Amino acid sequence: MTAPPTSLRERKKAKTRAAIREHAMRMFEEQGYAQTTVDQIAEAAEVSPSTFFRYFPTKEDVVLVDDVDAVLIEGIRAQPAEVPPVEAILRAMRAVFADMSPETWEFERRRQRLVLGVPELRARMLQQMTDAIDLVAGVIAERAGLPADNFSARVTAGAAVGAMLSVLPSGGQVDGVTPADYQRLETALTLLQNGLPLS
């Protein structure tokens, strides 16, 4: 989802990062998240543990870092200033998910299955939602020419992130997300945009 790296150095870094992540995901799935160590992942990826930590500060981050977030924020920022905040989020989300390849969807399904199936990852993911509110509030305020800590922007961002949380599979459903789940997310944001009418 991120722009392809251009320089040889950037391409090498992207390749190393992808290799670490793929080996980690495979090992988490095969032997369990808790049973897999950073040393094991580094060995499988043929890098040192210190190299692992240059790309991912913690083992959790291999799963929890979401490459879509930065693209979504830029998509919101790119919307014309006259577009209302929730509509800007909807337009950016549609653009991001329309560009996702089948391989990206499959990786996202695997990633979310791990997050939903491992209690400590699920708890950390919920904590990250506070950071998501900060990011979305900041870009909403920026588009309106308001301070980053504007109260209305934070309330709007909090409502949008809450809508996103509402469509996550429950703790007992660990098969991962599908395109249908993102369709439900669009429906949730549309409800928010329309003033949450009950039907």
Rank of each mutant, 00 (worst) to 15 (best):
L168E: 06
G75T: 01
P102Y: 12
T16K: 11
R110V: 07
F28A: 13
G176D: 10
P147W: 02
Q128W: 07
I41G: 01
G158T: 12
M93H: 13
L90C: 06
K13H: 06
V68H: 12
S7I: 02
A98C: 00
Q112T: 14
Q193A: 07
V174Q: 15
E108D: 14
T104Q: 15
R110D: 05
A88I: 10
S170W: 00
R11P: 03
A148S: 15
D175H: 06
G176A: 09
W105Q: 09
D67T: 09
R77Y: 03
M129T: 13
D99V: 01
L168Y: 13
E87V: 09
Y182C: 07
T6K: 14
H23P: 01
P102C: 02
T178E: 04
E106S: 15
P102M: 03
P119D: 05
E106Q: 15
R122G: 05
A163H: 05
E29D: 08
A188T: 06
P102L: 01
L189W: 15
E29Q: 13
F53R: 13
A95E: 14
G195P: 04
V38C: 02
T104D: 14
P102D: 04
T178S: 11
L192Q: 10
P57Q: 02
Q112I: 04
S166I: 02
S152H: 14
S101L: 09
Y33M: 11
E82D: 15
Q35E: 15
R124L: 12
A34F: 02
R21A: 12
G172Q: 05
A163Q: 08
M27Y: 12
T130W: 09
T130A: 15
E74D: 12
R143W: 07
S101V: 05
R26Y: 06
N194A: 09
R143T: 11
D99F: 01
R122P: 01
T58W: 00
A137D: 01
E10V: 03
T187I: 12
Y182N: 10
K59Q: 09
G176W: 06
V65E: 14
